[in-house]
Design a protein around this nucleic acid. Structure first.
Length: 282
DNA sequence: AGCTCTTCCTGAAAGC
DNA sequence: TGCTTTCAGGAAGAGC
């Protein structure tokens, strides 16, 4: 599923082809995942895409609209679990579950496909009511001390905090599990039980995992592909995620999976021990 | 504050 | 073999 590295990969691809392009037509299929479909249909045609950027797991399309005047509108797209954004020729075959077509002034199309429709799309005007306002630190932009300060002393489980978008923006289940394994921290640990050195190690683990995942163009587990339909390769580097029952590459102990923070959480019981006798089976 | 449960949705996989 | 059930999971909301 698209997390920070996947969204970053899609954004980098779109940055090569979209800035400067004008949207000439919008066609929508199913719209139950779109905040206000009529707003997209009325406001997007005629708009010029000034920039494409990532904010957490959101793609932000900064728009210049002839009518909006001083307002700086933007289109936000969240890929949810199975969202894909693809650029293609207008006569390219239409994949099932393609729900939005943005026709561009160079004759190409930007298409949004999302089998489960857990993604969402909305227009936002600069500075009001945007869901971006409640998001926490970008794990790649944050300094070590900012990262540590954000987590230190919190009573929640470290796994829950890493997944909480208002704490860190962009981490999802894959990169949370992989980072905790690299940092040798059990997902059930309460953040307040971690030492400063643990949090610094976690910061370095998160950064190195995310950077390597971006370098390999993300993880393709089920549906994920970039904006030209290409799969990522970081799934080949997963050490714990979806490796339950397989051997830890560090110590050969069998990887286990428990539910933490409502999410399947994969870890090595030897490398990531649960301190004290507290144990929970999932 | 933080936990658990529920909802949204589809397709893959497991169960019978 | 083939139908039915279960499950995965990002995010938001309810209830505790």
């Amino acid at each position: 599923m698209p997390e920070l590295p996947e969204v970053e990969t899609v954004v980098r691809g779109l940055q090569k082809v979209l800035p400067g392009r004008r949207i000439v037509e919008v066609r929508l299929g199913k719209t139950d995942f779109i905040e206000d479909p009529a707003a997209l249909e009325s406001e997007l045609p005629g708009s010029r895409i000034a920039a494409v950027r990532r904010y957490g797991k959101f793609l932000v399309f900064d728009l210049e609209s002839p009518e909006a005047g001083s307002q700086k509108p933007a289109l936000l797209i969240h890929l949810g679990m199975t969202g894909q954004l693809i650029t293609c020729a207008p006569d390219a075959g239409i994949a099932p579950h393609t729900h939005a077509f943005f026709v561009l002034d160079d004759g190409r199309e930007l298409r949004y496909r999302d089998p489960r429709r857990f993604g969402n799309m909305q227009m936002v005007a600069e500075g009001n009511g945007s869901p971006l306002g409640s998001l926490g630190l970008d794990p790649l932009e944050a300094t070590e001390s900012e990262f540590v300060a954000q987590l230190r002393g919190r009573r929640a489980r470290i796994k829950a905090l890493l997944l909480d978008q208002s704490v860190l923006r962009g981490m999802g289940n894959i990169y949370t599990d992989e980072s905790l394994w690299r940092a040798r921290i059990n997902p059930m640990r309460l953040a307040s039980s971690l030492k400063e050195a643990d949090l610094r190690r976690l910061y370095r683990a998160v950064q190195s995992i995310l950077k390597e995942a971006i370098r390999l163009r993300g993880s393709s587990i089920s549906d994920y592909v970039d904006c030209s339909g290409q799969r990522g390769e970081f799934q080949l580097k997963h050490r714990v995620y979806q490796r339950e029952g397989k051997k830890c590459v560090r110590c050969k102990t069998l990887i286990r999976c428990v539910i933490v923070a409502g999410r399947s959480s994969h870890f090595c019981p030897h490398c990531q021990p649960i301190p004290r006798a507290r144990r929970r089976k999932g």
